[in-house]
Every structure is written in structure tokens, then in C-alpha cells.
Design a binder for these strands. Structure first.
Lengths: 129, 129, 129, 129
DNA sequence: GTGGTCTAGACCACC
DNA sequence: GTGGTCTAGACCACA
């Protein structure tokens, strides 16, 4: 948990929940930790987790069953990936491209740097094991 | 001016000033509008413009000559480009690459979309003229 | 069973019991399923069904014969209809009328839409058979 | 403010804001009270008002201008009416009609009661003056 | 036990 | 001054 400012804590938690759904740690139709449990886990106020969960409900990634808890929605993984892809293509890429034009960076440079990046990731994953 | 949330008004103004320096509209050693003038132009509180200017002074893109006004620093353009490039490579690209990995997007797709983007920009600029 | 928010599970169950009494499926003086049976049927905690039954006892639609089970009260159907009608006329209609005034909807429009509704219901019932 | 339970306080406040926009008390592009002001007015915690305002932002009835306050959006009135009408026709009317069928209430009765209602409203408004 | 809501009070960035 | 966020702690209805 990053308690400084890049983005709100509740957002970071929501993102983490999505990660865990994507990774399969929390499968469809499965119950996820209660607001209070996760709050303790994360060292955070329950209200904050509640807010995260609510935002995930709004995005239809999880649902609430009264008095029982929150559950991962059927095709949450597909939905999350869909959302991320849309946001990436419609929001991030245009910003990226505009910056590239301003800076006179050619796409080839991006490709080249990406390859460097992939290799360094493989290396650092190798170190972990 | 976007008065809603993405980033602070003062940041947006600072960015615009940089744009105008880059475009050559405001050349090196030239005086830029006074805080009050720009505030009126932008429909914004003078304090806000003052803060923008101060951040630009901190980044050494402009300088204050007391009693006279703010002036573009000698090699402001180079400095601004430098800054943008550093931020882009060290901050934005890593985020970009991580997102690409998560979404399984190959760099070729980026290149392809960039070409589409460049064309559409050329077209819309043609329309303007 | 709607496990999400509109109204409590126990209320939904109580409503369903009333429906079955109204439809004649469960006649007066007849025994209705035990708390546990109904709980299994509905995929619900027995406590929840117990609470539904208790609310129906409070409204005098069913009664508990100790050690035997719950039974539909003599004139339950009349009583249920009575209750529904009272609630409708005293609680729902005023809200409805206030909304109509705010939105400038004339009662004629309601009548017209009601006719459409009745027809569509007849059609969909025809399809079922 | 109804501090009992029919609906949440923040909802009631949001509704009241809509009413005031509809009535013209708060015109388009106009600033509405700050979160803290309205909180004092209503005898309520600022967080609660903030939540109301946020829900109105989500519904695009008001917008936030950083550091200044909340403003009524251009065609908020039309939007609000639109929303209310949609909700009425798609959510409330079907419930109404189903209840009418269960209770064997004919639309003519609704019309008749509506006329009584309109008259009583006129009378009570006359008394106010 | 679950979540939903509200209060009180705090800190922050921003205008 | 503005709103945005977080914490602490409370109460409620519901399962």
C-alpha cells in the first residue's frame, strides 16, 4: 500500500482486487474477503475498503449478497480485461502518441526499448526464483 | 482550461506556457505576459498564474526580472524538451510497458496504431487550413 | 431470489408465500413447508425463513401450531388482499401522483400504457403455454 | 431532513438539490453552496453532503471546478427530468401495473383517485396563500 | 457474522 | 476559501 499520493488508497485496493481476479487467485462466483477482513490485512480503515468494493460493484466486477459478503461476478476477468484494454486504447495511447510527436520519438524507438524492458523483466523474474 | 479534475489548473497553464515556448511563439529572452494579463486571458485567479510561473521558474524555463516581468530563459526550449523526454522515458514508458504485458499487447500493434494516428492528425490539420 | 440490494431476502420470501396463498397453491388451514424445507428449497439460511414466517405470523396470515408446523390462517387470502390494497392506496398512489405532477404526466397516459402492458402480458403468457 | 430510514440522508439531499435545480432556484452554470455550507444548513456532516454532490456529479447534473466549488451543468434541468421520466416509466410503472393486476384495480379507479388528489392539492395550496 | 450509513475530526492539494 | 481522502468509531438492518 502506497500511502503517498499517486492515486487514492481505495483505488490501489480496487486495482489489487482486480489483479487477484485476473490472476485467478479469486475465481468467478467465489467469495472475496469481507470488508473488515481486508481492512485488517491491508492495515487500512474498513470504510476505505468499502469504498473500493463499491467502485468494483459499480464496474460490475463483484457483487454483494446481503449479509453474506462480496462475490466475484461470472465473467469478471473478461470484463476487467475489456475495461483495461478500452481505457488503454482510448485514453492512454492518444496521450502517448501526442507526446511522441512533440518529442520527435519514432515508434521504432519504442519497440526497441520494449525489447530491453522485456529482457530485464525476464532477468529479474529469474532472480526471484 | 479544464476546470474539472484531471490535473491542477496551475499545471495546465504551465504546460501551455511550455507549449508556446516550444512552438516559438515566445522566444528566448522575450518577455511573457504579466501574471495579471495571463490571468484575465485564461479566466483564472492571478494567484493561480503566479503559481504556474513559479513552477516554471523552479524548472528554470523562465526567470523573473524584478519590476519588469517574466522572461523566457536562454535555452528554455532545449531544457523543456530534455525534461519532457526524461519524464517520458523514465516514468511513462515503464507504465506503458507494464500495461502492455498485462493486456498482452504486442509492440507491433502500437506501431500500427501510431501510423493510423499520424494519418488522422495530418487529415485533421489539413481540414483546419 | 435476489441476493442483491432491492429488499431483504426475508421480505422476498414472505412475499412469495403470500403469492402462493393468493394463488390458492396453499389453501386456508393447510400446512406450509417447514422452515428447514423452505430454506433448502430457496438456498437460504433457515434463520432467514424463520424471520419471514414470523413476519407473516405478525401480519396474521399464517399461524404456528407448536411441534407441528405453520398453517395458513382461515381468511388469509382476504386479509392479504386487504393489506396490499391499503398499502397501495395509502402509500403508493400518493407517491405516484406526486411524481406524475412533477413530470407533467396526465392520467390518460397511464391508462394508455396500462393497456399496452395488459396486452404484452397476455401475449407472454400465451407464449408460456 | 428525515433522519429515519426510508432512504439515506445523502439521497434525500441529492433529491433536494435536484428539486432546487428544477424549480429554477439554482440556475444553470450557477454555483451551488459549498459542501461545508450546505452541511451546516442541513445540520449534517460535510462528508454526507460530499457524497450527495458526488452522486450528482456521476449523474452529470452538477460539476466541480477545482478549488472553487460545484456548479449546475448547462442543461441539468432537462437531464434531471429525463432521468426521472425514464425511471418512472421503466421502473415504477411496471411495478404499479403488476400490483393493479394482482389487486384487480382498474385504471379508471386510478384516474378517479388522481382527480380527487389534484383537487385536494389545489385546496391545500389555496390554504397556504 | 455481513455491509450501509453517518459523524467527528484530521490532513492534503489546490484556487 | 474549495473539495478529496482517510481514520476512528458508532449504529443499523439483515443473514
Amino acid at each position: 500500500m502506497e500511502f503517498s499520493q499517486p492515486k487514492g488508497i481505495y483505488q490501489q485496493i480496487a486495482d489489487q482486487v482486480c489483479e487477484r481476479i485476473l490472476s485467478g487467485e479469486w475465481a468467478a462466483e467465489e467469495r472475496i474477503p469481507s470488508v473488515r477482513e481486508l481492512a485488517v490485512d491491508m492495515g487500512v480503515n474498513p470504510n476505505t475498503v468499502a469504498r473500493s468494493y463499491q467502485s468494483l460493484v459499480d464496474d460490475m466486477h463483484i457483487e454483494n449478497r446481503r449479509g453474506i459478503g462480496y462475490f466475484v461476478i461470472q465473467n469478471a476477468r473478461e470484463r476487467i480485461l475489456e475495461n483495461m484494454k478500452n481505457r488503454f486504447i482510448n485514453m492512454e495511447l492518444p496521450r502517448l502518441f501526442r507526446t511522441m510527436q512533440k518529442l520527435g520519438i519514432k515508434p521504432e524507438e519504442i519497440v526497441q526499448r520494449y525489447e530491453q524492458f522485456s529482457q530485464s523483466v525476464q532477468v529479474s523474474q529469474g532472480e526471484k526464483q
